[in-house]
């Protein structure tokens, strides 16, 4: 689920929509999971604890989310706070030699904003073109790999990527 879908679910949940709220919480589970799997390699058994703590924090403190702002930075801020709090409670320190590894997967706000911009931009391509662009240009899969995974021909993938990029560039030119 992307930023837009999650933010829409949060808006619906705030109107008391129970189904949207459940979908939102379920949609946040993989977000928290990927966040912690990259950062707490030494405590993999605790990832579920972290996820539950974060879901509870979202539940109890959702009033602090400002609907005029993107949702994911708020969600990541909660995840980051819970992680720091756990380290603080254990009085753990990080060796300076480990610092590069610790910050390598860090979602800084500019990086996150860039990611959100790309997601928003890709919404202007068709779903098929979007999937092809994400697979080949962002995840780095080859045309052949994506063709097999998507069950389409290689030329189909090439055409989707080409048309998708063309649509995005004309959208950017229009906005500029």
């Amino acid at each position: 689920m992307n930023e837009t879908e999650l933010a829409n679910l949060m808006r619906l949940a705030r109107t008391g929509d129970r189904r949207a709220y459940e979908e939102l919480l379920r949609g946040l589970v993989p977000v928290f999971k990927s966040y912690y799997l990259r950062r707490v390699r030494d405590y993999l058994v605790e990832v579920d604890d972290f996820i539950q703590e974060c879901l509870l924090a979202v539940h109890q403190r959702q009033i602090t989310y400002d609907v005029t702002r993107p949702l994911l930075p708020w969600v990541y801020a909660i995840a980051r706070h819970k992680l720091i709090d756990r380290f603080r409670a254990r009085k753990e320190v990080l060796n300076l030699s480990d610092i590069d590894a610790a910050v390598s997967g860090y979602d800084s706000e500019p990086a996150l904003s860039a990611k959100l911009d790309v997601e928003t931009l890709l919404d202007h391509a068709s779903p098929k073109q979007k999937t092809a662009i994400i697979a080949t240009k962002i995840r780095g899969e080859s045309i052949a790999e994506h063709a097999v995974a998507a069950g389409v021909s290689e030329s189909d993938v090439k055409v989707s990527v080409h048309r998708g990029l063309k649509a995005l560039s004309s959208f950017v030119r229009r906005k500029a």
Binding site: A13, R14, G16, Y21, E22, R26, V29, L55, H59
Partner: peptide
Amino acid sequence: NIDEFVSALSSQPP
């Protein structure tokens, strides 16, 4: 556990 937890939380939407 997480499924159960989500179900419990979502029974009380904001």
